[in-house]
């Protein structure tokens, strides 16, 4: 049985750990609120550009953009995997990677090749270890990424799509449902498949394009994909903070339980030693 002093130092070290986890929990909680606000702030742009793309699908442009066309044959697919830069956020990243791997495996089973572009350190180190083709990466985005920090990663994939190197593109990220629930999501970015036109919009009309349809549409669709990826990244950050908050809360709780148990053991040991001393003294007195 451990001696009193050993147990005391153990309790002290667990208490220190508990202080750290509790601090991390509180930091994550406040960061989560900010991340949620940021998520709400990015939503108007996402919905607006989505509306424009929808309108565009109803219009009858003379120029069909390559992002909107289905490819007859798919040989190679691209994935953009969004993860956090830091760990200690429960199973968030691992669950996401599992979902991604499952999806990737079905593609490989179909005889397709896979290109991966990673956002966040965790995804980079995870997919860096696997025998997959890593074509781009962005790390160290921080808590408040700016849209233009993602351009590089997105452009690598868009260029690959345009040149016919990949035939479809998917985005893998965590969707923020609420603090307790985050959903792994795999969404198709390219080819972008707009919904069917509604009756009111289906009459024949078209925009005036300035300077011309090709240039405007090229520009617009790149922005559209970028906004989808940005939205995914921002949402993933909110998920990261929520998940870290929950993980750190349960760590603090577990530390509390451990301390209680150890305290009990310590008290028993102390009592036992006192009892023993008394009985020794009594025995000694009786012998005299």
């Amino acid at each position: 049985m451990a001696s009193g002093k050993e147990i005391r130092t153990q309790i002290a070290s667990i208490k220190n750990t508990q202080k750290i986890t509790r601090a991390m929990e509180m930091v994550a909680a406040s960061k989560m609120r900010k991340a949620q606000e940021r998520m709400a702030a990015t939503r108007p742009y996402a919905t607006k550009i989505h509306n424009v793309i929808q309108h565009l699908a109803f219009a009858h442009p003379e120029y069909k953009h390559v992002y909107l066309q289905d490819r007859a044959e798919t040989k190679r697919v691209g994935y953009i995997v969004v993860s956090s830069d830091r760990g200690l956020c429960g199973g968030l990243n691992n669950n996401l990677f599992k979902t991604a791997l499952k999806d990737i495996k079905t593609k490989i089973d179909q005889g397709l090749e896979v290109d991966i572009c990673t956002i966040g350190k965790k995804a980079t180190s995870f997919f860096g270890r696997l025998p997959v083709n890593l074509t781009g990466q962005v790390v160290q985005l921080g808590d408040a990424p700016r849209p233009h920090e993602l351009i590089g990663a997105v452009k690598v994939m868009l260029d690959a799509y345009e040149s016919g190197h990949i035939d479809s593109l998917y985005l893998v990220f965590n969707e923020f449902v609420n603090t307790m629930t985050q959903k792994n999501k795999v969404v198709q970015l390219l080819p972008a498949a707009p919904e069917k036109p509604s009756a009111e919009m289906s009459h024949h009309w078209d925009y005036i394009y300035e300077p011309d349809a090709k240039e405007v549409l090229d520009h617009l669709l790149v922005r559209y994909i970028e906004s989808l990826v940005y939205q995914g990244v921002v949402e993933n950050i909110a998920c990261e903070q929520a998940s870290r908050m929950v993980a750190m809360k349960s760590a603090s709780d577990n530390a509390g339980d451990l301390i209680d148990d150890l305290q009990l053991v310590y008290n028993k040991a102390r009592q036992a030693s006192i009892t023993q001393e008394i009985s020794e003294i009594v025995a000694g007195a009786a012998a005299v």
Binding site: C117, T118, T124, S125, G128, L134, T135, G136, Q137, V138, V139, H148, I151, G152, A153, K155, V156, D159
Partner: peptide
Amino acid sequence: DIDEAAALEAKADAERSL
């Protein structure tokens, strides 16, 4: 050209980690 530079950087980063 700025977009292009960003793309090249993302690619170079990936190659480095490979």
